[in-house]
């Protein structure tokens, strides 16, 4: 079975050294020392610039002189370059409509699904340019890359690239997008541990969808349970060790391996 690429560039924000375990709610005052701190992600000044206020329910985090709030719930905002799992929900002769778990449906144009060959001797190879939406069907699960995304227009996707394209087999589950960094762990520690212990292929994407495929249905079910447990306990400390213990215990209880 081919080895899947890991998406591990995102650091585990939850386990930064300076992340306090302090929960904050929207409107809560984070600090009144405005000379020493700058409002970072998920924070705002009040009207008179005398206080820094949280915008989300999340964990307070101080990075140098920035105050951030790491949200615990939220929606996925597509960024150009993200590799995500999309589901084809509609198609017409010129484009596919894809559900990417964001506020808009994304569009995938057929010219972004076939690799264009360089024209040879000034002639275009018309057989390669199959510019119709015959390649994928409604309900297909695709791994795609975001080409462009902003807050006004619909995101555009592509399936040209390494590891991109249609996925056959496997299971896709959804979790809260802000908890994805926790599932990956610092430098991919959590995902490596899950992979080794359950012998499954896992593909984690930033829009909160996880594709898993294992040799054995028992392992897959254990892995799904473990991922939901990580989602539920994402804000707690010492999660990687606890998950390792959980999986080893469950393996014994279920009599697998």
């Amino acid at each position: 079975m081919e080895e899947e690429e890991q998406i591990t560039q995102e650091d585990d924000e939850f386990e930064d050294e300076e992340t306090s375990r302090e929960l904050v709610v929207p409107g809560e005052v984070l600090t009144e020392e405005v000379q020493d701190f700058i409002p970072g992600r998920g924070t705002i000044f009040n009207k008179d610039k005398t206080k820094i206020i949280s915008l989300h329910i999340g964990l307070k985090n101080i990075n140098k002189n920035y105050i951030n709030v790491i949200p615990l719930r939220g929606i996925y905002t597509p960024q150009p370059g993200d590799k995500i799992i999309a589901i084809v929900v509609d198609k017409n002769p010129v484009k596919y409509k894809c559900d990417i778990n964001a506020k808009d449906f994304a569009q995938l144009k057929p010219r972004n699904t076939v690799k264009r060959m360089k024209s040879r001797m000034g002639k275009r190879n018309y057989e390669q340019d199959d510019l119709s939406t015959e390649k994928f069907d409604i309900g297909d699960i695709l791994i795609v890359k975001v080409l462009s995304a902003d807050r006004l227009n619909k995101p555009e996707l592509t399936t040209i690239g390494k590891y991109l394209g249609k996925k056959n087999g496997g299971i896709v589950i959804s979790i809260d997008p802000p908890k994805i960094p926790r599932l990956i762990g610092r430098n991919g520690s959590m995902i490596k541990m899950l992979k080794n212990l359950t012998k499954c292929n896992i593909f984690v994407t930033q829009n909160g969808r996880v594709w898993i495929k294992g040799d054995n249905i028992a392992y897959e079910r254990l892995l799904i349970e473990a991922i939901y447990k990580i989602e539920r306990e994402a804000h707690t400390t010492g999660l990687t060790d606890r998950m390792q213990l959980f999986i080893e215990n469950e393996k014994k209880n279920r009599g697998i391996e």
């Binding site: 409107g27 998920g42 705002i44 206020i53 915008l55 615990l72 929606i75 809260d176």
Partner: peptide, 8 residues
């Protein structure tokens, strides 16, 4: 729901 809000 995790929607950014100034306050409750």
């Amino acid at each position: 729901a995790g929607i950014p809000m100034k306050s409750l």
